[in-house]
Nucleic acid binder design. Structure first.
Lengths: 212, 212
DNA sequence: CGCATAAGTCAGCGGGTGTTTACTAGTAGT
DNA sequence: ACTACTAGTAAACACCCGCTGACTTATGCG
């Protein structure tokens, strides 16, 4: 469905490498490339839609290498998810409340991100049906929301965690809208554009002193 | 043709129909049932994951009826989406600003919803890859956010629409978290639990008079 | 060099998917 | 009661997917 260039395909399959030059034998490198390509495709198009042939072609390697390095498509997905989880976890270490909004804006729309963090957040919303993967993404979402709740620390009633999860939902919803839907003007908003609204949002939901 | 005289009657492969009784001949009814089941499955598990046989079995009818009534799986998806779009559009008619939050809370977590609105919102986030469907969901999201922006009508700078879209993103993010992820305590929050936080959220993002 | 081993390729297999075609069986009109 | 028509069924087809086992080629080491 998605990719047009399916048929025809002469004997040399869709290799990204130049036909004359051979792919250098670097297992580590191709493994990493497979992971990167797969993360992008899984995050953007979902698990079931993405085929292993798409990934392999995009990475310029043979399909069999996926099974070799990650045992299966699900294994590859779990590897992507694991990487995303560690990356996301590290990035959400200990942010004080008054900087959460700015940090969110930066993560969502920061210019020229090399860590591809929005992609990784998006991946947390994708499901492969596998239980282990399910546990991982639920775990990291729980961790993040708990950290945010403790950073906020307002609301002596039990609603702090709930409110933090709402903020998290908002952030992920925004990423989804930008990355998968392309709803303008949200999709084209810069980090500066998002800073003020997000500050209002975080403040209203997590600040100690509220009106209502 | 002396082929296998006994139809044997494999007694209702699905489960919706009682083995003994035959499905009554009601095209309208089965069509509606297919649509309802498909909407639920598409919204919950996504387009690619859901198989037409799952849908048919769940509705208690034969698979071929999907092609008959909706020409194809994509046609069925578009029909579900169209229904969801009209339902969502009607439900977001003209809500004054001060009631948006309550309305959202009711739509997200209202008790015993017969219109299955959360499901329909969730469907708006699912993609089949078809361009026509893509246009539909983008259109309805645009409409809703514009209505919300005009209801708010604050922010003489051009950020009203952006802020409305952030509110919408938050709502959809929450629905996604509840319906697809099951993140507690958000997933189990009642309408009352959500009312106050959502009021804060809407107020902070859309109210005319803000501090910062 | 010669060879063992790892990196990468190729072609094909089961299995599941969406769709179609031929068929059965209720139902309404005359 | 006969017939035309439509709702519903069953089985198969063609295709694409994930995966595998045998093969080829480059690199490291004596």
């Amino acid at each position: 469905m998605g990719t047009a260039p399916g048929p025809v395909m002469p004997v040399a399959p869709g290799r990204a490498t130049i036909p004359g030059t051979r792919r250098p034998r670097d297992a580590e490198r191709t493994r990493a490339q497979l992971l990167a390509v797969a993360t992008g495709r899984f995050a953007r198009n979902g698990y079931a839609t993405t085929t292993v042939r798409d990934i392999a072609d995009d990475a310029g390697v043979n399909v069999a290498l996926i099974s070799r390095y990650f045992t299966s498509k699900e294994g590859l997905f779990e590897a992507c998810l694991a990487e995303a989880v560690t990356e996301v976890r590290r990035d959400s270490d200990d942010t004080p409340l008054d900087r959460i909004a700015a940090a969110l804006a930066h993560k969502i729309a920061g210019p020229d991100r090399e860590d591809r963090l929005p992609e990784r957040f998006l991946l947390l919303l994708r499901s492969s049906g596998d239980q282990h993967a399910e546990d991982m993404r639920l775990g990291v979402l729980r961790t993040i929301s708990e950290r945010m709740a403790s950073a906020a620390a307002g609301h002596d009633d039990g609603s702090a965690l709930l409110r933090a999860q709402i903020v998290l939902s908002a952030a992920l919803g925004i990423i989804l809208m930008r990355g998968s839907l392309g709803l303008q003007p949200l999709a084209g908003a810069t980090e500066q554009d998002l800073a003020a609204p997000l500050a209002d949002l975080v403040n209203a939901l997590c600040a100690k002193d509220r009106t209502s």
